[in-house]
């Protein structure tokens, strides 16, 4: 039967590319943790943004009120030469302005700090995961299983799709010899037993 050459080429490329990275056993937990973390971050950012808006509006209203009061005083004061508010009032207004400015600056600094902390936490979590994988030998085991899986995967394709039985047998034996303790080595043993059984029947 003539196979579609485009499809054949794509499937060969897919086979040659090998399988993707090995599956992670803790993916569901990681997803839930990540969802909770992002939700907390979004909530904090929204609350901070709302606070900034409220303070900004408050500052604007306060400034407008101050200007209005100064204008009123200016109108109410007698004509020149020296119509100005008392030094105590000026000092009090300056103090209030300074306080509001300080609050706005503090809030902006907290936002920057929270953002930096969140980034550091994410970096730390990534590093912790990498260290945990290395310490538990999980990464090494995963690499061994991946290598064994790749060999058995290709051996299967050689046997079942290309009819290269001998090459497939060599590959199965290689997977068993190099990675005897892996699940894929067991699969390779099963395959060899199956092929031997077929040979006996013939």
């Amino acid at each position: 039967m003539n196979r579609d050459p485009v499809e054949t080429l794509l499937r060969q490329a897919d086979w040659a590319a090998g399988p993707p990275s090995a599956s992670r056993v803790d993916l569901a937990d990681r997803v839930r943790r990540l969802a909770r973390r992002r939700h907390r971050t979004q909530t904090a950012v929204r609350a901070t943004a709302a606070a900034v808006v409220v303070i900004g509006v408050g500052l604007a209203v306060h400034s407008a009120t101050l200007r209005h009061r100064l204008d009123d005083r200016t109108v109410a004061l007698p004509p020149p030469p020296a119509a100005s508010p008392s030094p105590e009032e000026v000092a009090q207004l300056r103090s209030q302005l300074a306080q509001l400015q300080k609050e706005a600056n503090d809030l902006a600094a907290r936002i920057r700090s929270m953002t930096a902390i969140q980034e550091q936490r994410e970096r730390l979590a990534r590093m912790e995961r990498a260290v945990a994988r290395l310490e538990s030998g999980e990464e090494v085991r995963a690499q061994m299983e991946r290598a064994a899986f790749t060999i058995v995967y290709q051996a299967d394709r050689m046997d079942r799709e290309l009819g290269l039985r001998e090459s497939a047998l060599r590959a199965y034996r290689q997977a068993i010899r190099l990675f005897p303790e892996t699940p894929s080595a067991k699969v390779a043993r099963d395959r060899l037993a199956e092929i031997n059984t077929q040979g006996d029947r013939l």
């Binding site: 794509l10 060969q12 490329a13 086979w15 790749t150 060999i151 290709q154 290269l164 060599r170 590959a171």
Partner: peptide
């Protein structure tokens, strides 16, 4: 480019297997 996948094809099978360069072209 993907990491070496440990191909174990025999020389006789080369004509039907895909080497890295060809895989790169297809990709």
């Amino acid at each position: 480019e993907p990491a070496e996948t440990g191909r174990v094809c025999s020389p006789a099978a080369d004509s039907r297997m895909m080497n890295g360069e060809t895989l790169g072209r297809v990709r």
